[in-house]
Nucleic acid binder design. Structure first.
Length: 345
DNA sequence: AAATAAGACAACCGCTCTGCT
DNA sequence: CAGCAGAGCGGTTGTCTTATT
């Protein structure tokens, strides 16, 4: 195992900070500044480890900390950034002046995450939660099961419920191509998210990533989602040569720079446009309006407190219910009636 | 009014990264 | 290059508050 917790040494104090400890820490930092956290507690007369002091300062005592309820703009920003960055709380916090990574993380876990789950959205992938659907019976009788699972990229998942809905959608293709398109959209969106997130650490390390496909950030208009486009769907599912073992189409890496159908939490008016300069980009969308500057996401904010602006009426709502109601109303993907998500909530 | 459950958030733990020697 | 310390990060736990029964 790892080393022993630093506070176990020398009988240092743990647990909640007292007002006296806070005052000692603040007084010391105001006089001497912070840094060298290891020696700081001793110099400040605190029976705490340096790490505990640093956390207390950065998460609570720092004078620029903004306390209180998150605004709607902040919440919207968090969701958008989380869809790109995942659980990179410090990177998200960098775009929210006055908020700490810890605070954002807590807020996500206690508020936003639960709300997305209630809305049937997977808070990890920001995609509809197909895993919750009751799909258990049909596919075991289907000769298409293996090929469908390849199409879905879930052969390692072997989730019969997911496979069943896929089959249902396949069987209704002729009657309702919209459902099929939805399934494909969801699949593409998930692939896009996972690919981007996999590449983020590498690209950050080499400072290569200037832009990421905005289709994975904010999403095109509703018409793009509901428009039938069965040509994009492999007509013959036995042609598995076009599909990689991980379920990703071989040509996907070429295609995924194109705008992908996806959804929007707050409506198409909230298209995020930041520093569109595709000519300098490692990734770019064919639609320049959908570019999103990843570098700007990660950089420390300068002047604008909420760079991801919103003019939505959402920000005028005040209660948790109103927020959820707004989110539900403005969601740009639609869950078909056959997906009785509520039963699983 | 008391007991219990759920929610909210502060704090801790362990790991990783970075810079220095 | 290896080893070390400091710092930062994300996940988890602990504790307090509020709501419900």
């Amino acid at each position: 195992m790892g080393r022993a917790p630093c506070c176990e040494k020398n009988g240092l104090k743990k647990g909640p900070w007292t007002p006296e400890e806070d005052k000692n820490l603040v007084d010391y930092i105001q006089e001497h500044g912070y840094g060298n956290w290891r020696t700081l507690p001793k110099n400040a007369g605190l029976q705490r480890c340096g790490k505990s002091c640093r956390l207390r300062w950065t998460n609570y005592l720092r004078p620029d900390i903004k306390r209180g309820r998150f605004s709607f703009e902040e919440e919207e920003t968090i969701i958008q950034l989380h869809s790109i960055l995942g659980n990179k709380w410090s990177a998200i916090a960098a775009r929210l002046p006055g908020r700490t990574d810890n605070e954002i993380k807590n807020y996500w876990n206690t508020h936003i995450r639960k709300r997305l789950l209630r809305m049937g959205i997977d808070p990890v992938t920001h995609s509809p939660r197909l895993d919750l659907l009751d799909l258990s019976s049909i596919l075991y009788n289907s000769s298409q099961m293996n090929n469908m699972s390849r199409f879905l990229g879930v052969q390692n998942l072997v989730n019969p419920e997911l496979l069943r809905i896929a089959t249902s959608l396949m069987s209704s293709e002729r009657e309702n191509p919209n459902d099929l398109q939805l399934l494909q959209n969801l699949q593409q969106n998930q692939l896009c998210n996972s690919q981007i997130q996999n590449q983020i650490p590498q690209l950050l390390q080499h400072n290569e990533l200037q832009e990421i496909p905005a289709a994975c950030v904010s999403f095109p208009s509703e018409t793009q989602i509901v428009e039938p486009n069965v040509e994009q769907f492999p007509s013959d599912f036995t042609q598995t040569a076009d599909w990689q073992s991980n379920g990703i189409p071989l040509n996907f890496t070429e295609d995924y720079v194109n705008p992908l159908p996806s959804y929007n939490y707050y409506g198409s008016d909230h298209q995020t446009v930041m520093d569109p300069s595709p000519e300098n980009s490692a990734f770019y969308s064919n639609n320049s309006n959908q570019n999103f500057s990843f570098a700007s996401v990660l950089s420390t904010p300068s002047s604008s407190p909420t760079p991801l602006n919103s003019n939505s009426p959402y920000i005028n709502s005040s209660t948790e219910d109103e927020r959820e109601s707004y989110c539900s109303t403005m969601l740009k993907f639609e869950i078909p009636d056959i997906l009785c998500v509520n039963e699983f909530m």
